[in-house]
């Protein structure tokens, strides 16, 4: 309150800065306590020995990571490749999710950006409409749709397209369908933001200068909407990698993802340090992938003009 008053009444820069610092102090403090704190705790836990009946022993212990990556070979703790397999599957499903979200949202974003202002606002409202209903309820609806006696199979049978109900639910496909469904708004909004900014006269200029539709897309539309593509796919990829609600409802026991694994370690197995180690590994993998992704894009951006130089 005092901060806001200082900002509006204090004419000089120093007071404004002080006010800004005061305003930012609360969220900074909040994030430090409730985000960085737990994260640091998890990091510490991942290097501690699991207690016999849950909890932790405060001794340094590297076999949590050993169980994941392969050097654990003791009587109690041994390497099991299943964890890496679950990681790989999670990565693969998250990649598919990002890809299909992009595939669905990119054309839709162009379509919406060309609508009249009223239709456009309505559409954006519709895109955010699922947020009004609980995720679990929505996913149960998908269970009803996808199960052998569900709507999808009944429709396919009725149309004579299949002879026996398809096994959709409790497969990787069901998980991808569910995650695409859940994350579509997260892909759409950043994509739409950058597609809407695209100046239509640039597209015309490209065509006017002799570029075909495909050349125009590749050389003008794609590079200029790339920030939205990058933003959207990161925002979809990260939470789908760690998602555990969708795989547990639509993937059943067969399609376990890292999210489920971590949840299991914390809640069922009560092996907190191992759960923390799994969590840290996912986080490190995500960070690594992001760095590589952004680096690659940045190099592409630099390479484009230098291509013309040669």
């Amino acid at each position: 309150m005092t901060g806001r008053q200082a900002a509006s009444h204090g004419p000089n820069a120093l007071r404004r800065q002080a006010a800004l610092a005061l305003l930012l102090a609360a969220p900074t403090l909040f994030l430090a306590v409730f985000f960085v704190g737990p994260l640091a705790l998890m990091f510490v836990y991942s290097w501690l020995e699991p207690g016999l009946y849950g909890g932790v022993e405060w001794t340094f212990y590297h076999l949590n990571f050993g169980r994941i990556f392969g050097w654990a070979n003791t009587r109690y703790e041994s390497f099991d490749p299943v964890y890496l397999r679950i990681f790989a599957r999670s990565l693969w499903l998250a990649l598919q999710t990002s890809f299909f979200c992009l595939l669905l949202c990119y054309p839709a974003a162009f379509w919406v950006s060309r609508l009249g202002p009223r239709a456009r606002n309505l559409f954006i409202f519709l895109i955010t409409l699922p947020f009004f209903v609980s995720l679990v309820v929505r996913l149960f609806a998908w269970v009803l749709l996808l199960r052998p006696t569900g709507f999808v199979n009944q429709a396919l049978l009725g149309l004579g397209l299949v002879e026996r109900p398809l096994e959709i639910i409790y497969t990787e496909a069901a998980v991808v369908i569910g995650m695409v469904y859940v994350f579509i708004p997260f892909m759409f909004l950043p994509l739409y933001a950058s597609v809407e900014k695209l100046d239509a006269s640039l597209v015309e200029a490209s065509q006017d200068l002799g570029a075909s539709r495909f050349q125009t897309f590749r050389k003008v539309v794609l590079p200029l909407t790339l920030p939205g593509i990058v933003g959207g796919s990161i925002i979809v990829f990260i939470p789908s990698l760690g998602n555990f609600v969708v795989p547990s409802l639509l993937g059943g026991a067969k399609v376990m993802m890292t999210g489920n694994l971590i949840e299991q370690q914390f809640l069922s197995a009560r092996n907190w340090p191992f759960g923390a180690a799994l969590g840290m590994t996912v986080m490190a993998a995500v960070l690594l992938l992001l760095v590589v992704y952004v680096r690659l894009l940045a190099r592409d951006d630099d390479a484009a003009p230098s291509g013309a130089r040669s």
Binding site: A205, V220, P305
Partner: peptide
């Protein structure tokens, strides 16, 4: 409005 491609340099 000139419609210059903002992601390209002058030569390109």
């Amino acid at each position: 409005n000139y419609a210059l491609f903002p992601h390209m340099n002058v030569a390109r």
